[in-house]
Design a protein around this nucleic acid. Structure first.
Length: 237
DNA sequence: GCGACAG
DNA sequence: ATCTTGTCGC
């Protein structure tokens, strides 16, 4: 399948994304499952970290094959299958999870279909993307104080935010992936635990994935099943 | 044609 | 993301 077909598929999948208000609890109750992947010697090392009420509950890691090469704008096809493989292997044993959190974009994407959209659709869960760099032109500059946010637009349409999580430090770029709206993406990003630019759950997942890739795991090992497909169907019936 | 381009 | 040494700064 060529690049243009994959891009057409993104546009079709984007039409299935539902940007709607999520009933997220207060920060003291919010539970998130954050993911990250590191690559080493052709193997994807994936980690997922569950946080609730600002505290780490449990973190898992595992390994699988690399689904696709990295191409800007098609990141979801590279990273999505690994995240879904981990999610499928641990979701059943987890307590309630309010939102899935990924290191990448949601709908703040040239075709409105970033990694958070892919994962949200595949897992049928609310999903949020928090990235360190904007994919859309003219990244806006929010006020310098923690809590400030400036909208990120595709054309005239606001799809996400540059969010200042720490006073005087560069913002992160947040957008909803699925079952969450644009306003909710800003609120959730500021409700996530940690005072650093990148929320603690993502930093923990990053550390766990890197540690596993380097041969010194810092999280519980789980067996990942067969790598899910990069394109639907993701479900049986 | 050239550069830019989530991770 | 990964390949890589040292270096500057809070």
């Amino acid at each position: 399948m060529d690049l243009e077909a994959l891009e057409r598929e993104q546009r079709a999948l984007a039409a299935r994304v539902r940007l709607e208000p999520a009933a997220l609890p207060s920060p003291a109750e919010l539970s998130v499952f954050a993911f990250d992947v590191h690559y080493r010697a052709g193997i994807a090392h994936v980690a997922g970290s569950l946080w609730q009420g600002g505290r780490e509950q449990v973190t898992y890691c595992g390994a699988c094959e690399v689904a696709a090469p990295y191409l800007p704008g098609l990141f979801c096809y590279r990273e999505g299958p690994a995240l879904l493989a981990l999610w499928r292997s641990v979701a059943e044993r987890l307590p309630a999870v309010d939102v899935l959190l990924v290191d990448g974009h949601g709908v703040a994407h040239p075709r409105r279909f970033g990694l958070a959209c892919w994962l949200g659709l595949a897992a049928e869960r609310p999903a949020l993307g928090v990235a360190k760099q904007s994919l859309l032109s003219d990244p806006p500059e929010p006020a310098p104080e923690r809590g400030a946010a400036a909208p990120v637009r595709l054309g005239a349409e606001p799809l996400g935010w540059a969010v200042r999580r720490r006073t005087g430090v560069k913002p992160v770029f947040a957008s909803p992936g699925h079952l969450l709206d644009v306003a909710g993406a800003r609120e959730a990003t500021l409700a996530l635990p940690g005072r650093c630019r990148v929320p603690d759950p993502l930093r923990r997942a990053d550390r766990a994935a890197r540690a596993r890739a380097s041969g010194a795991p810092s999280a519980g090992e789980v067996e990942l099943g067969r790598l899910p497909p990069a394109l639907p169907p993701w479900h049986d019936s």
